[in-house]
Amino acid sequence: MAVSSQVLSYYSFEQVDITRFRIRPEINRQKVEAEFSRAVYPYITWTDGTELYAGDYAVLIIRSDNPKLCRSGLKVTIGAGLLGAEFEKALSGKKVGDSFSVLWKGETVFVTVESVKNRHKPELSDDMIAALNIPDVKTVAAYQTHLEKKELDEFFFEHSRDAVGYVLKQVQANSSILVTEADWNQTVEWSVNRLAALAAMDGMELRTMTPEDFRGRIPVKSYDELVVLMQREAWESVRMSLLGEYLAKQNGDTINADGYETFLTEAAAPWGRTAEEYRKAYPEAYYLQNEYCDYFRRAVTAYVRKNYFKEEKNEH
């Protein structure tokens, strides 16, 4: 009877202690403020005005002895910093029809304010937030909470790689997993074929790529080195997918290839290729194996996320 790859004994990630990785969360308030500002963008209006204030824009006529600096209908926003500090300072407070001289690009130019548009940016309101159509986020307060959580998730994503890697290693080290040579070989073949197809899309032949060709693409110097790397990665992938399959079964979750066609379309698009072209690089069985890997990694990441942040004031 043929032996199949399988998990013989499973060491749960929930048994792994991550205390030494725990840190205090930090929220980037500047980013949250920027997102608040962006929610108002669709409601910004511009009306004809007579006087220039910060944030407004003006339409200018510029005259100079140097014809290269002469412009008509030149638009500039006060405070955007694109014309230079001295120019913008000179513009601030000016009215339609005002003229003045200023140093621009090393030469004195004569400027006339032809027209002015005043900017009106309303305060952020609950109605604006509701219009964003974020599930369960209908008020400014709820949006604040939503953004802070998003920031926290990003902070976790940026900082938790070591912790997640540690847990994955501990589970693999303490579980007994049987991997058949056939399954290992198959995964190596999928990985190499995928890279060969991607190289071909770039107009290269994987087997004959030089160290120069590999530079900046894959951290190897030759095809043989690449195969060794793929063997190492495939070993990890098969084991991880088996753990994912085992855990999904234990949790009563179904992992299938329903998203395969969408995946092909989305993965091929940035390369300017079709799903059909990408299918050769990524067979369905390879996709499914990676789905199991992702399932397991997501479960481990969720466990780390739940226990990662120090929240108590006396926790150091």
């Binding site: 500002s37 910004i44 926003t77």
Partner: peptide
């Protein structure tokens, strides 16, 4: 751009920031 590309979304945000400041 393409809708499935992460860096495209980042660039889009930058362009929207500029558009809010420089509507012309």
């Amino acid at each position: 751009f393409s809708t499935s590309c992460g860096p495209c979304k980042i660039l889009s945000t930058f362009l929207e920031d500029l558009e809010a400041e420089l509507p012309f």
